[in-house]
Nucleic acid binder design. Structure first.
Lengths: 341, 341
DNA sequence: AATTAGCACTCAACATGATAGAGTGCTAAT
DNA sequence: ATTAGCACTCTATCATGTTGAGTGCTAATT
């Protein structure tokens, strides 16, 4: 790989990202003045193909980058521009405007990212099951209903309604509330187990029948908590790209987006620090073999708790996407840090 | 409109719904044995076109139903089959399985409807701003944070986190809690106004600075509550239909689905009892001029609180869709009634 | 030894033209 | 009032030819 090969490869990739057309030697020598004739470029291209960085859609067509080509580009040649000051300010403003609950913030981040990149963005919420319960309190509504309010160390609030057919008095609820708080505080949700029930019954035997109805319901609720949520935004953006002019391709892509499990897998299997890029066949699922993902993490308390991702064709403007994703994730981190410390 | 015209129209509509191909006189006389020759059918078709029930995509093609044609079919000729017993049981089972919070139930209903109909389904959640506050309670988390738990008469639970920079004591929170409860109970959310603040300050002057931080935050939260939420399911189902083989049509449709305002308008502008069908150009928005909506309402407390809808091409299997939507909405009503009474 | 001009060859994309087939509307016969 | 017969219309499809961007190889040039 001499200097010139690198230049040629880089030029081809940039051109292809821009035009979506296979790049030929003549076009290349015209646009990017490499100082050599098309014939020379042809030879280099032939070499690059042999090395696996380029492919030819058919004989006597121009070349397009292979997954391996994108990979070497992304790892070695790509320049990441800093996002413009005004745009940065704008992102921050928009994020602050919408910062009610954490989920709102994330949903809105997805929207901002898809608008700025023109691709589809996907955000994974924190894995709430790893959260520790910070406080739990039973709030009576009437004789037969109460709300079990819980807040976790990462600021997640859950408040399921619990029905008590036999009725419950105010002071009973309070007693049970205190007891639950003692037992569950600082436990992570997935560690809460049903056998805690037995301990409770021993300690507070006069409330046995209430405990027996309320506690299992809370456990069931915690059990049933969706592990992560997935927010999508800009799903129709793919219609901007010629690779999805084929109705079957478009359908396949959109169907994949609808499958929460696949998306969750794709996103959460990326590496856990900084920006991670996974290209075409590198992806965990066959369904995403024509797509690339650019993923960032966001944290609270120095624990990784979620990821945000851009998904689009492998012919993606990686440089721009990386800078947007990086910036937004950085702001989310800032906002979450100031909020929950 | 003699008897025979009706039969011909009906046959054309059913055939077109099934095949998506313009229906010609010969095909028609073969499939549905109407007892007359193609030539006679041709004459009837010509009449029906003049009456506005049919249109011809181009000279010398078969006929397809116009919006007006579908309308008369839906209003007068359509038979609605009762959905099969086993299927009914299955719907109920699935709904019960997933009945945690109301929102979950609705989200799941959307999924069931889209699966059973093969179209896209959209569900509008209750207009929470019309709900009355049943109970409000402040739950302290630590010195600087508390959760304002609210439950409404329709069973909606909201629990925003409220930050109190100056700190708040346990008993202060309780006092304020009781006061808020007194003042806000049975008020509808949209009637809660900021000037209530002033009254509170007069009554509980020793808590002035806490009231000043906490109460406005709760008001802001209530103000900012999204009026309705929209759940979609089966958005990629449209790719099953030849009318969306055209990439532009597909894009237009999916883009419309992404626009919450349009969808909310379309659905909520339908009539408020029983099943409502709106066909093509009858729809409120230009964007939906090739679509039909079949919409049902669901209620709690005899107040209409939400709608569920199927959206698809005007060439929709109205009969089947109506029966599914009717059945699901009925079950939702049942479940909500037993739950919140 | 590296570069490049020249040239024959390849292949998708597009335009053209011919044909088949489903359908219509009209007229005259039943 | 109904229908058979017929000329006509229009789309869809297929084969054919042309264009143009691109390649790879060879021989000439630097």
């Amino acid at each position: 790989m001499n200097e010139r090969k690198i230049k040629v490869l880089q030029a081809i990739i940039q051109d292809y990202i821009e035009t979506a057309e296979p790049v030929g030697s003549r076009t290349l020598s015209k646009k990017h003045n490499l100082g050599v004739s098309p014939a020379t470029i042809r030879n280099e291209m032939s070499d690059l193909e042999e090395l696996g960085y380029l492919v030819q859609p058919y004989t006597s067509a121009g070349r397009i980058p292979s997954d391996k080509g994108y990979r070497i580009y992304v790892d070695n040649f790509m320049e990441i521009k800093m996002i413009a000051y005004l745009q940065r300010k704008n992102i921050k403003k928009k994020l602050l405007e919408q910062f009610g609950e954490v989920e709102q913030l994330l949903q809105h981040s997805a929207k901002i990212i898809s608008q700025l990149t023109n691709y589809t963005s996907a955000v994974l919420t924190p894995q709430i099951k790893n959260d520790k319960i910070k406080r739990i309190q039973l709030v009576p509504i009437d004789k037969y209903n109460l709300i079990a309010v819980m807040i976790t160390d990462t600021g997640n609030i859950k408040s399921p309604l619990v029905n008590v057919p036999d009725g419950v008095e105010y002071d009973e609820a309070e007693k049970l509330s205190n007891l639950l708080n003692d037992k569950l505080q600082d436990k992570s949700i997935k560690d809460v187990e049903i056998n805690i029930l037995d301990n409770l019954e021993l300690e507070l035997y006069e409330l046995n029948n209430i405990i027996e109805t309320v506690v299992p319901k809370i456990f069931n609720f915690l059990e049933g908590l969706d592990d992560v949520e997935l927010f999508l935004s800009g799903t129709t953006n793919i219609f901007n790209f010629p690779e999805y002019n084929d109705i079957i391709k478009a359908k396949t892509f959109l169907t994949m987006l609808e499958e929460k499990e696949i998306m969750t897998d794709l996103i959460s299997s990326t590496k856990n620090d900084g920006i991670s890029i996974s290209i075409g066949s590198e992806n965990l699922h066959q369904e995403a073999k024509d797509c690339s993902l650019v993923t960032a993490t966001y944290k609270i308390d120095d624990n990784i708790i979620g990821k945000l991702s851009v998904i689009g064709p492998t012919r993606m403007d990686y440089s721009n996407v990386v800078s947007v994703v990086k910036q937004v994730s950085q702001y989310i981190n800032e906002l979450l840090r100031t909020r929950y410390k």
